[in-house]
Amino acid sequence: MDKLMNLKLKVWRQDDADDVGRFEEYQADDISPDMSFLEMLDVVNEGLIGSGKEPIAFDSDCREGICGSCSMVINGTAHGGQKGTTACQLHMRHFSDGMTITIEPWRATAFPVHRDLVVDRTAFDRIQQKGGFISVRTGSVPDANAIPVSKDESDLAMDAAQCIGCGACVAACKNASAMLFVAAKISHLSLVPQGQPERERRALAMVKQMDDEGFGNCTVTGSCEAVCPKEISLDFIARMNREYGRALIKKGTI
């Protein structure tokens, strides 16, 4: 087995949304390179509980990079900087003995901190509720092969639909913009024929809710794309802007 590591952690601790919060330092000793980053935190937490302290609260569930629960900024980068990798899939072999690792929550006005590294991302759900769907009732649908979908467009729709809604794009953006997230859903649904009837309504409603939630605007720095664990392309933001412009014109708003 590879050599065990000793690390120093600087972790953001915050009791609740009203607390101002602070960094605290912990030692993480005998860390195996085969551990995932979250397993390393598990080890630290077991130690904290053992010494009568409260463990570091963080979200995680599937631990295989698909549920989008885990959400932490590691050494200044959302999810820790391994390309296309969530924090739960980041492994300790990418760190080295003696390192200091800083761990913070997503920071954005629209994502208030619940506790430590746990933030409130329900703003994303509210955006979806405004138009991130195709209005079909269960049962009232044609045969699945009645409407052919070109393979290229379906594949492109899938590229966008892969978004796991983790919020790293917001955390990485200096404007705390949610455009990559919203663009992924608007693009997915505007690329498939089933999504056409609501195309304009959807774009207008989702963008409005995004703005109402307090997310910032896009200045095309591309940091969202760089940290996205599903490597969702910045091109989708351009597509969303076209969808939005098209909707404004069609609805006669401009």
Binding site: I134, T138, G139, N145, V149, K151, S154, M158, H188, L189
Partner: peptide
Amino acid sequence: VNIIDQCAAQGVPFAREYGGLL
């Protein structure tokens, strides 16, 4: 069989053949 119809109508991007069918 109804499930696949339902999901396709929701816009689920299932794998497709070049002819556009599932």
